[in-house]
Design a protein around this nucleic acid. Structure first.
Lengths: 166, 166
DNA sequence: TTTTATTTTCAATAATATTTGAAAGTTATG
DNA sequence: CATAACTTTCAAATATTATTGAAAATAAAA
């Protein structure tokens, strides 16, 4: 396969994967581009490569910075901003886990805490309490898994799994 | 909190959680409803409770069946179809993991396999091969984690984590 | 077979989300 | 201070996705 075709397909795929992971398409594509870049990219280069507008590029670069998936670097003597991403998939996974936990898991645990304290005696209410309490328990377990995953900066996770899964 | 308010908030939250998990809003809300139901629900009951159209209800119920997140039950002597879901959060998680693996991870591994075989010598091509090969390795590790998770019908996962995380 | 209950389909519509591009904002430099 | 280089904003335009509802299909019952 030609490089240009491979690159296109990879960026395309990363974009659609992103959108089923709570990250919008363009944001994921910019990330994909940074992953394979051999040096920091400017907004202009990103615009040109992905054929997107300045506004779009800017917005999504900010979002990536916000998610901790890219960072700004300055070239000495230049005024323009350049961007890079960490190329280690494990760092990427950790960062995504951290953000999604904050944006999704934490709020749902809070909500389940509230609603599982519902008052009442009927059959429906009993069932509701039971289900939401179970979900809360599960969510809290998941939370502690993710916390451990985030805090460990090495590969304990896969080391253990290596032992289990073979 | 009143039951009606708690129920509303829970369904609402489950819906928006769903949409950031690759499951559409209404589908997640129907699932939420089935989770707290004390008996199987018919399409009509779902339509009424969530105030959605017949077409919408039907489509999303089919999608839940398709994901293995709901199943059809027939009441003796009745012609109408009723639906239930498994109430164990672990079963839910397993099912979602299985489907998402099939829909997302498997295709991306296939793609990375293809594009990492790109031909060429330049610096860009070398970097591209390196990054995509790393991603592929990571994706395959993730795949085996998920497979283990899916195959084990008990709680080995949390049992182990209990030991690690305390 | 005809009627009736129920489910499915799908074109039209509505709701959401993304993208554009030009104008406004910011900040370094002469 | 004025200009130039660059970044940010945001209302309007587009594109995408979800929803409706009525008609068509299916299948049990009369």
């Amino acid at each position: 396969m030609e490089y240009s075709e491979a690159k296109e397909r990879y960026i395309e795929a990363w974009g659609s994967l992103g959108s089923s992971w709570g990250v919008n398409r363009t944001m994921a594509q910019i990330h994909a581009l940074l992953m394979i870049a051999t040096e920091p990219l400017s907004t202009e280069e990103i615009m040109e490569d992905l054929k997107i507008s300045r506004g779009n590029a800017n917005m999504n670069i900010r979002a990536l910075l916000d998610w901790g998936l890219a960072k700004k670097v300055l070239k000495p003597g230049e005024r323009k901003e350049y961007f890079v991403t960490d190329k280690d998939p494990m760092v990427l996974a950790t960062q995504v886990a951290k953000e999604r936990k904050k944006r999704e898991l934490d709020p749902i645990v809070r909500l389940l805490d509230e609603v599982s304290a519902v008052q009442g005696e009927g059959k429906e209410v009993q069932e509701f309490k039971k289900v939401t309490t179970n979900l809360k328990g599960f969510a809290k377990q998941a939370d502690s898994v993710i916390n451990t995953f985030i805090q460990s900066n090495s590969n304990w996770f896969f080391k253990i799994l290596g032992k289990i899964t073979r």
